[in-house]
Design a protein around this nucleic acid. Structure first.
Length: 426
RNA sequence: GGAGAGAUGGCUGAGCGGCUGAAAGCGAUCGCCUGCUAAGCGAUUGUACGCCCAAAAAGGUGUACCGGGGGUUCGAAUCCCCCUCUCUCCGCCA
């Protein structure tokens, strides 16, 4: 959610910034509703003030055993009017809030203007594409060949976009989770948390999934519970409604969770393999930062995510999302795209964003300045570190051998109980 | 799932129709005192929004907020209804 006062005072600037995102949002509606709301507020508050004063006098008179019936009947009318105004205020505010909730964040000034992913500048590349003496296969072929991924069974058990991992495939997934969480928790100073995998609608609102993106979520029928689409939701909401101490900032969390996504509107896209699933595992990093350091924190966060691939020795590049490709709540995002030789393409494996105070304002996450005692919104950040299923894909494709076996990256061998290669099951 | 008890400021905890944005204590901050520490003394100590003033900060003023929502009343932290959460006991259960 944007700052109402900021939008009010910089309406042309905001309109222009949103246009760069490719969003055609009528901020005239904002101004009209804002004005209407303030007009009602002014009137109702004046009346309330009057009622408070007179009611006090009623109390005084009663105490003196004097008659107050003239005041009481007068205030009856005032109260009725207040009730009327309250109702229209509620309506206007509901419209206003609903509208505000649909306005995306303003991109940071460093974000380049562009229409889609083709315009994202590459800011870094690491490593090199592996050279194969044979035609590298996509992971759905190596995975099935090695009997570590079973798409048919996944479909039978649940449906399309679900996969059954078997044997060393299941172990590889689990090894990656532990490897990633350990790296961030032990070496990068993040506090490990294991949150609920379902959250209530207040939490979904706090991080911006609701009200706009309900169709992307799985909801538990007959309850207020939603399956989380990312650990960002439960973890960012840890501090919802809180005022943190400045000395505790920045706060770092790392969490492993499964993620559940309805993938509405992506039918026909990435139907093969593990790339786009209804359920996948992810290790997520979340930060709460002071506003003045949040962009440094974003750089560090992105570096922490990149380090996972560096340790696994897999080629990737990092792109800076342009205005047209930026997510709803983000002010700036780096995507890490890993090289997938079997698909001859780079695929997103991590997305690291600074939301500035956009989520903090919705979720009311603030901190108190030590110096002045003033309360301000924190900046929230998060990034995948990494998407686990896609990392399995990257290993299966980058480390495949001509005989169809797959070598386990050095750094993972301890997590695989010493297994250094997946060979075809006999 | 059943029965009961609760939810008040950073924390503990009073209040149970008007004098309560809220006692008291703790904590915190500032000042005094002090060889140092401790103790002591004094002051300050919520958030949001509107309006006034203003370049801004500060300030002034109004309104709202005592788990959430609704109701009764001239007036609600206080009375009534619904919901959520916490605790205790019983049942069930990995």
């Amino acid at each position: 959610m944007l700052d109402i006062r900021f939008v009010r005072e910089n309406i042309d600037f905001v309109q222009k910034k949103l246009a760069e995102r490719g969003q055609d949002i009528d901020l005239g509606r904002f101004s009209r509703l804002d004005q209407e709301r303030r007009d009602i507020l002014k009137e109702v508050e004046t009346l309330r003030g009057e009622r408070n004063t007179v009611s006090k006098e009623v109390g005084q008179r009663k105490k003196q055993k004097e008659d107050a019936s003239d005041l009481i009947s007068k205030m009856g009318a005032v109260s009725a009017r207040i009730k009327e105004l309250d109702e229209s205020l509620k309506e206007t505010e509901a419209l206003f809030d609903e509208f505000l909730m649909t306005i995306p964040n303003v991109p940071h000034e460093s974000v380049v203007s562009g229409t889609d992913s083709a315009d994202n500048p590459v800011v870094r590349e690491w490593g090199e594409k592996p050279v194969f003496t044979f035609e590298p296969k996509p992971h759905w072929e190596t995975g099935e060949f090695l009997k570590v991924l079973d798409f048919a069974e996944g479909a039978k058990i649940a449906g399309a976009r679900f996969t059954l991992y078997r044997g060393l495939g299941a172990r590889l997934e689990r090894a990656l989770i532990n490897f990633m969480v350990d790296l961030h928790a032990v070496e990068h100073g993040y506090t490990e948390v294991l949150p609920p995998f379902m959250v209530n609608s207040d939490s979904m609102r706090g991080t911006g999934q609701l009200p706009k993106f309900e169709e992307d979520l799985f909801k538990i029928e007959g309850t207020d519970y939603y399956l989380i689409p990312t650990a960002e939701v439960p973890v960012t909401n840890i501090h919802r409604g809180e005022i943190l101490d400045e000395k505790d900032l920045p706060v770092y969390y790392v969490a492993y969770t499964p993620c559940f996504r309805a993938e509405a509107g992506s039918y026909g896209k990435d139907t093969r393999g593990l790339i786009r699933q209804h359920q996948f595992n992810k290790v997520e990093m979340v930060k709460f930062s002071r506003p003045d350091t949040s962009y440094d924190e974003l750089e560090k966060l992105t570096a922490n995510a990149e380090e996972v691939l560096e340790r696994l020795n897999i080629h990737f590049r990092t792109v800076d999302l342009c205005t047209g490709d930026l997510g709803f709540s983000a002010a700036k995002t780096y995507d890490i795209e890993v090289w997938m030789p079997g698909q001859d393409a780079y695929r997103e494996i991590s997305s690291c964003s600074n939301f500035e105070d956009f989520q903090a304002r919705r979720a009311e996450i603030r901190f108190r300045r030590e110096e002045s005692g003033k309360v301000e919104f924190v900046h929230t950040l998060n990034g995948s570190g990494l998407a686990v299923g896609r990392t399995v894909v990257a290993i299966l494709e980058n480390y495949q051998q001509e005989d169809g076996s797959v070598i386990i990256p050095e750094a993972l061998i301890p997590y695989m109980n010493g297994v250094d290669r997946i060979t075809p099951a006999v």
